[in-house]
Design a protein around this nucleic acid. Structure first.
Length: 111
RNA sequence: UAAGUAAAUCAGAUGGCCGCGGAUAAUUUUAUCUGAGGAAAGUCGGAGCUCCAUAGGGCAGGAUGCUGGAUAACGUCCAGUGGGGGCAACCCUAAGGCAAGUGCCACAGAAAUAAACCGCCUCUUUAUGAGGUAAGGGUGGAAAGGUGAGGUAAGAGCUCACCAGCAUUUAGGUGACUAAAUGGCUCGGUAAACCCCAUCCGGAGCAAGACCAAAUAGAGGAACUUUGAAGUUGCCCGCUUCGUUCCCGGGUUAGGUCGCUGGAAGUGGCAGGCAACUGGCACUCAAGAUAGAUGGCUGUCUAAUACAGAACUCCGCUUAUAGAUUUGCUUACUCC
RNA sequence: GGGCGGGUGGCGAAGAGGCUAACGCUGUGGUCUGCAAAAUCACCAUUCACCGGUUCAAAUCCGGUCCCGCCCU
């Protein structure tokens, strides 16, 4: 997730996804998904101040970024995905995040 | 050995696989190098840098406040002075002026900057009288120096000794101040109350600001005028822009580029200085993202964990912080 | 990143050096009533966010921390 073509960059895009995308809640993460008419998926990560201080927020974003990188080849392309981290995720382990994310992604593929 | 006190340092190390930001090479997906902190934090003080006039004048306002020094600067640092605490090492200290002016000092108390309630003493008309006095009582945080002696009708710095305080002179010190002598005879507290004195301070902040180019349609240069508007923290001046005419080609905003990291830089030893620090020499180049780069799995060593993540930069202060190491000094105990 | 404002009973909110820290709402208890409502009386701050300092005396003045909120895009 690496290059900029895999990221959601502007405020307008984020607001558009919040307004028109599908919302899929999980234990630690809330997903917003919307089709983007491209041949790839794009991702955005949101961690509010309620999650924790800067160190904790950065750690969770890195772990999610790593998980997304592993999962991406197995997902169908053509979607914008925003992940909002819920406030009690600050104490979550990597494996808990991994489990939750796979559950949420499974739900998303059903719809 | 124990207790204490002052200070300094480190902030896991080293591999493997899969990934990320930047730079440089090739050159189109690979190599090599490099990639968070001592506080990156709070934004408390100061500075560089940028724009507003080149940062200007006056008033108002604000900040600092023992002395000398350091520094680009500071409310920081160093060395000292006075005061307070501690057996000591040592620590704390907004510490100029109330012997310029003004204000305030609740309650209590006779009285709070002004004199007399109970007293004490004298006189007499023996009274709920007149006068003297400020030692004793009482109130209060504070009552016109304190203790002792002399003195007196009773008393009082009224006089004397010692102590405290004040002024002057002399000596020492760059100075804050210290010491001694002499003198008059004593002057409430509060300036983190207004204020006075000395020194300093223009405003905004990298979302500053400069440039490029698609869309929308107006602006640059020169001259002119006087009002008004905007900017320049508040007010007055001054300045800039907007206004009209002429000459003519360019101004605002999603996006991009620059600003953006080589600097009051770091390391080492030398010289000067009690020190903070300064000078010169040699070597080194050590993140620069733009929704925002350090993660995941795992091996070895180990006591191995805390607080915590750069966003223009730097110097300080303050606050958070597991564990470990080192050094100076003090006190107590034991042994030699 | 930068610039500002605030913190006083359960809630809202005054007080800006000196008496027991106003006031309104809520709550609890009493009076009234056959029972309630309304009315009325009483009670609820021992640490004025926290830590120091100035002062005889601090919610108030000064310094420092913590927390909450707003603005600039």
């Amino acid at each position: 997730m690496l290059g900029r073509e895999f990221r959601i960059t502007t405020t307008q895009e984020y607001n558009n996804i919040y307004k028109n995308g599908k919302k899929i809640p999980g234990r630690f993460i809330i997903l917003y998904i919307m089709k983007n008419h491209l041949d790839r998926n794009r991702y955005g990560f949101v961690t509010s101040v309620k999650v924790g201080k800067a160190v904790i927020r950065n750690r969770i974003k890195r772990q999610l970024r790593d998980l997304v990188h592993r999962m991406d080849p197995s997902l169908p392309p053509g979607y914008d995905i925003v992940m909002i981290v819920r406030h009690h995720a600050g104490s979550a382990e990597y494996h808990q995040l991994e489990k939750d994310l796979s559950v949420v992604m499974g739900k998303a593929q059903h719809r």
